[in-house]
């Protein structure tokens, strides 16, 4: 038999094999990563590049003309303000609706809770186009609500259709499931025992909420808020169908600039402005994901 002393050569096979596997792993993820790079990372830099670099006439040069045009145009600014306002109202409404809902879902153990969970998840399975159509038929002029009010001898509602409240109602409706889900997941960090111990110590439900639950889900609430802002700020379908034509929200505005006005550079400028405004929330969101993943491991 061969003599193998402990001071013999250190086997490098293990690490070499690991390197081989490393290459296989990289190869397997390469296509999605490339796609991600090409269609998410690159477009962002490309958009910034193409809006601040002038390629016309005498070679490349630095120019902020589209940005100047955007911020000196009253209509563009009105659109931006409308979008910010709608986003803020939606975020506030969503928290006001989903926080109680998620608190209930986290701590309720009755059979009704399953029904409530099902109902709160349901909008996730209603595509926004269908939702838009359904809302027009329900709260639009002479819609379902008007019919019922009329039958009861009450005056018609002031229809939110084609006002900023149209997209607000639609966006809130559409975002209830995900917001609730994320809040419930955040509430998972609060253990039953922590709550029971507080009640045992004599805390009333309100005190439990204020001193035990809210401090522990602060971060989750912020993540949910960022996520909501990111998805609502550049929403398109619901504002386009339900919202006012003028001023309009950034989504339809960008689409119209790109598709009808055919001013690609201006449309991309508008996109870069939405990136800039959402950057704070995006950065917070990414940081939070990174931290969660580190803690998870």
């Amino acid at each position: 038999m061969t003599d193998l002393s402990s001071t013999g050569p250190v086997r490098t096979g293990g690490t070499a094999r690991r390197n081989g596997r490393g290459l296989t792993g990289l190869l397997l993820v390469s296509v999605p990563v490339a796609l991600l790079g090409w269609l998410i990372i690159y477009p962002i830099f490309n958009a910034i590049g193409r809006t601040i670099l002038r390629t016309d006439g005498t070679g490349p040069g630095f120019s902020l003309d589209t940005y100047v045009r955007f911020f000196s145009d009253g209509y563009s600014l009105a659109n931006l303000w409308l979008t910010l306002w709608v986003t803020a109202v939606c975020a506030a409404l969503l928290l006001a609706i989903c926080l109680p809902l998620s608190l209930y879902l986290r701590f309720a153990k009755s059979r009704v809770a399953a029904v409530v969970q099902g109902l709160s998840l349901f909008p996730m399975f209603v595509p926004s186009v269908i939702l838009a159509y359904a809302l027009i038929r329900t709260i639009g002029p002479n819609g379902g609500v008007d019919l019922v009010l009329n039958a009861l001898g009450l005056p018609k509602i002031n229809s939110p259709y084609l006002t900023p409240w149209g997209p607000i109602i639609g966006l809130v409706w559409d975002n209830i499931p995900l917001t609730t889900l994320m809040l419930v997941a955040g509430l998972g960090a609060v253990s039953d025992n922590a709550v029971e111990a507080a009640r045992d110590a004599g805390a009333r439900p309100w005190a439990v909420l204020r001193h035990i639950i809210l401090p522990q889900i602060g971060n989750a609430v912020l993540v949910v808020l960022s996520f909501t802002v990111l998805s609502i700020f550049s929403a398109f379908t619901l504002p386009y169908v339900l919202g006012p034509a003028s001023p309009e929200m950034m989504g339809p505005f960008m689409q119209r600039t790109f598709g009808q006005v055919m001013d690609t550079r201006m449309a991309v400028t508008q996109a870069v402005i939405t990136f800039a405004i959402c950057a704070v929330f995006g950065a917070f969101y990414v940081r939070s994901i990174a931290r969660n993943r580190k803690n998870g491991r």
Binding site: M1, T2, L4, S6, G8, V10, R11, R17
Partner: peptide, 12 residues
């Protein structure tokens, strides 16, 4: 697991 040193023998 791969040992870094030494050997494993089955029936020599």
């Amino acid at each position: 697991e791969t040992p870094e040193r030494g050997a494993i023998l089955i029936d020599g």
